[in-house]
Write a protein that binds this DNA or RNA. Structure first.
Lengths: 209, 209, 209, 209
DNA sequence: CATGAATGAGCATTCATTCAT
DNA sequence: GATGAATGAATGCTCATTCAT
């Protein structure tokens, strides 16, 4: 019988989430100990279990939240009118700048989604995958729309195109945010808009662009 | 002869490595129990420690081996003469076909390197990172060579280009091998050569290609 | 407040210490299993690690405590004024009676210090040694004082004298407490004061005394 | 059915015994691994079990051998005629010199008997105790003989006297051989005859002597 | 709501001993 | 006689979770 969520101090909850996210992003799922999380949040061990059903549930929740925010960012890139090729690159560049800026401001979340989630157990890995599926779907709509507007060459393999595109974006995102060592504290030499522009150019024109 | 490695039955060793790789690829580092590995290999708990110093050492060894094989595959793509743009796409397509074929035949190894390594502890994560750094370096040489031969536009940001390229390739590799769920048993609908060709086209000409 | 020792129920702690000391004194370091200790203390395995960092740390702590108590007992024997030879024997007899009474009331601790500590690993053996070095130093001061007061013949080999004296005392202590079998439950036929007196006589006058 | 000891190469046996003794003296019973012993002796793991029933049996044998040698040394001190007090000290000094010389030449054995034996399991500790009981008995005869010859004051507590004497001797022996840290490689500044003489003086005359 | 001591299943690793070759 | 790979029981320690206060 899952009773309605009991009364909780929302600030406490956020404290815990932030502490957890920080440690998860840094050490990964299995190396993140509840005892460290509560210590960082300044509450007791028991309190954690007042706010979250379990370690796994917390992470699942974190991922779910992240998914929604991420989709929201991409959804804003949906194209309404046709335009020139350069328009397209600029528009994509703008979308990616939003995405990269969001990612930069939510490094820990991105670390969890891009990297650390893979080290966890099946339910968590599945939640992470669902996130990227949703992410890919959002891009798929955008590509399809561009094809409908005659801005991109038609392909009968839209999913593959979208797939490759998402690979490119998540790949770039990972390295830009976390460097070769996947270090959350890594500081790239590129600004969000720079890396976004470069990625967008590559997106449309590849190495020859 | 360093540190007196005890004499070992090479078959046993391979048995153990294969069992370990299979489970590691499927469950990740922390969820892989030595007890499961030895059960799968049909030997006793103690036998594992006759062949490997520790769980961590085994994985480190696996990764080191994988790195070498991987680099070997890429190194064969080094270009000797200039050629047309189409030559270049074909040549890259061939290299990627080799890479993707290798990856397909070493799914478990690739799972470890691409995905599961992140769930492990620092020394292992570092070894994985080193692998991808070496991988990127190999591509960097290839790109630079192509620029020297006048086949690719010169850029003053070679590292970024290589970076983005590697992101693209590893991203595609992950999704192609392991699908949306990062499942080692995932079977893609694309053959290695197909995905390689598509990736190579994207590599040079992007979405507009 | 160093290193945030977690708050602990002092009674539990004592329960565990007593259980551990009893088993350590009886079986020695390596044969003392944490599982036996917690069973004897009536708590769970994990509880042990709430109170102590590790098996080794517990024993180290036990030894450190023991050292302090032991030194305290001896320090009270420091002589202020000169006296006759008989005074000296009586005074030493009194000191040894204190020591032997203390030892009798802390048989397990003494077993650890006198006998069982040797079976353990280096850090513990060293801690035990340090205890006896401190013990010897305490006696050295006492002898030196007696020489300064002209009560003992001057020797230019004070350390050797102190050494032999401590050997005598610890030797007697071991045998008196634990008998020929080094059995912790061995009950000597001599009262602390008897053995102390006899030892004191021997101390000053040897077999001829 | 204990068959007659199978044919064994006596040199191998000695090799093993010496290697074992060296390691036992240094690391103690529990920290001495058969694998280290055979490595030091240059034979295989299995060979050990051709020569010795078990680790425990080997040590038991070592102790038994040691006991016999030790008793032999002391037995030579048995007094035949009366003499002056100085005779007595000299005679004891000679006996102790023999003992200390033997001990110096058999440091590893002495380490096992005096120190490391205590860390082992019950059967071994018992064997060690039996050794010292025999040792004490030998001294008891010597003291009794001296009393019969009127060289020592009669006491109705011969056992206690012998006991204290043995404590003195073993205590001095331990410290002289192994120092405060019970280190087998410890080198005392005193020659066997010096420490023997000093001990003998103390034996008869105590601190006042 | 909060606490934090207690729990106990779970895991990597060790090492004396065995036995097929 | 000798070998050394294989065995597996045993143990110290971890950490998510619980629950009495």
């Amino acid at each position: 019988m899952l009773a309605a969520t009991p009364k909780q101090d929302p600030e406490r909850r956020i404290q815990l989430i932030e502490a957890a996210l920080k440690i998860l992003a840094c050490k990964g799922y299995h190396s993140t100990k509840i005892s460290d999380v509560v210590k960082a949040a300044g509450v007791s061990q028991g309190t954690f279990y007042w706010y979250f059903q379990s370690k796994e549930q917390l992470v699942l929740e974190l991922i779910e939240d992240g998914k929604e925010k991420l989709i929201e960012v991409i959804a804003q890139g949906y194209r309404k009118h046709a335009g020139t090729e350069d328009d397209m690159v600029r528009s994509s560049s703008r979308l990616l700048t939003h995405l990269f800026t969001f990612a930069d401001r939510n490094r820990e979340l991105m670390a969890l989604l891009l990297i650390k989630g893979q080290g966890a157990d099946t339910p968590i890995r599945e939640a992470v995958s669902q996130t990227w599926i949703a992410f890919e779907d959002a891009f798929k709509s955008n590509i399809q729309r561009a094809m409908e507007l005659g801005m991109l060459p038609r392909t009968n393999d839209l999913p593959l195109r979208a797939n490759i595109l998402v690979c490119l974006i998540t790949g770039v995102l990972s390295k830009w945010l976390f460097g070769p060592m996947n270090d959350v504290d890594f500081k790239s030499v590129y600004a969000p808009s720079e890396i976004a522009e470069e990625t967008a150019k590559f997106e449309f024109r590849g190495l020859l662009g």
